[in-house]
Amino acid sequence: MLLIRCPHCGPRNQDEFAYGGDATVKRPADPASASDSEWHAYIYVRDNPRGPHEELWHHAAGCRRWIRVRRDTLSHRILATGPVHGPLAEEEGR
């Protein structure tokens, strides 16, 4: 079970969190002017790296904040965590 450091609460077990997927997805500023293809990319196309991945987690059974986590999808090692909009703090250890 992962140990995720919530920037607001500290390290917590994975089961307090819900996964939110790719954190790099940006909602088009003006959806009406987005092409079908651009809109499709926003809805359906995600970063899916084999390695470090920027992702969102929701501290659902905690502070209810969405947070950003950089996690290696191959080793499950957590490299950095932080708020959704803000600097990530590097993690040591796990």
Partner: peptide, 9 residues
């Protein structure tokens, strides 16, 4: 969760 998502993200 969705409310919190759209607001916070």
């Amino acid at each position: 969760s969705m409310l919190e998502y759209v607001h916070q993200v």
